[in-house]
Computed example of a mutant assay.
Amino acid sequence: MNRAEKTRQFIIEKTAPVFNTKGVAATAVTDIMEATKMAKGSLYVHFQNKEELSHCAVDWNLRQLTDKFKTEAEKYTGAKNKFFGLLDYLSDPLNPPVQGGCPMMNFGMEADDTSPVIRDKVYQTICDVQQGIMDILEKGIADGEFNSNWNYKEFAMKAYAMIEGGILVARVSQDISQMKMLMDILKRELNEHAAETH
């Protein structure tokens, strides 16, 4: 990267947590200046406007989340261990993997009515995460860890919805007890579909 590209990346990385925490609409140019310690004129050398920067910040937050999921999953061998490991990783929404909380939820709820571009970015990430869960479970079936007649695609969608719902409840209530309960339900259901030989 040349100097301009490095500066652009610096701005994205410094402002991404601000956008994820405050939301796109509520993040002011002064917040961006504070986070980067840069003057307004310097910022607009690298970005056309706040909207362009917000799109880049959303991309960065979403990529951080999916990269962290992949890194966490790679620590485990076997589909069941991977899935359980990811559930444990996500079990405390008050200490989320990405600063500010789940960017899929944060940006998805805000962009639903305000930004088709951001909404599409979030939707694509949701699809990618759901597919990632399905891939783990499908591999588990292929490896004989789970019963071959299990409707794992339905389970993957349900698991994703329960996790996101649990994150919302935990963040609003500042209490992770319901999230822990949901994780236990998902683990129990996964165990029910384990093949007899495992």
Rank of each mutant, 00 (worst) to 15 (best):
R3M: 12
R3I: 10
K6T: 13
T7K: 13
R8S: 06
R8H: 11
R8G: 06
I12C: 03
K14T: 05
K14Q: 14
K14P: 02
T15K: 00
A16E: 09
F19E: 01
N20V: 05
T21C: 01
G23R: 00
T30M: 04
A35S: 10
A35V: 12
T36E: 11
A39M: 07
G41M: 10
L43N: 07
L43W: 10
L43A: 11
Y44F: 15
V45M: 14
F47P: 05
S54M: 06
H55E: 14
H55G: 11
C56A: 15
A57C: 15
V58M: 07
L62D: 05
L62N: 02
R63I: 04
Q64M: 14
Q64A: 11
L65D: 05
D67W: 07
F69K: 04
F69M: 15
T71P: 00
E74M: 10
K75E: 08
Y76A: 08
G78T: 09
K80R: 13
K82C: 06
F83S: 01
F83W: 00
F83G: 01
F84A: 13
Y89A: 00
L90T: 01
S91F: 00
S91P: 01
L94R: 09
L94F: 06
P96G: 00
P97Y: 08
V98S: 12
G100Q: 06
G101A: 01
G101Y: 03
C102G: 01
M104S: 14
M104T: 13
M109R: 09
E110N: 09
D113I: 05
S115P: 04
D120H: 09
D120E: 15
K121G: 02
T125P: 00
C127V: 13
D135Y: 02
A142N: 12
N147E: 15
S148N: 09
N149A: 12
Y152C: 05
K153T: 14
M157E: 14
K158V: 14
Y160T: 05
Y160D: 07
A161M: 13
A161V: 03
E164W: 01
G165C: 06
L168K: 06
L168E: 12
A170W: 04
D175Q: 08
K180E: 12
M181L: 15
M183F: 01
D184C: 03
I185R: 04
K187P: 13
E189T: 12
N191E: 13
A195K: 06
E196M: 13
H198P: 01
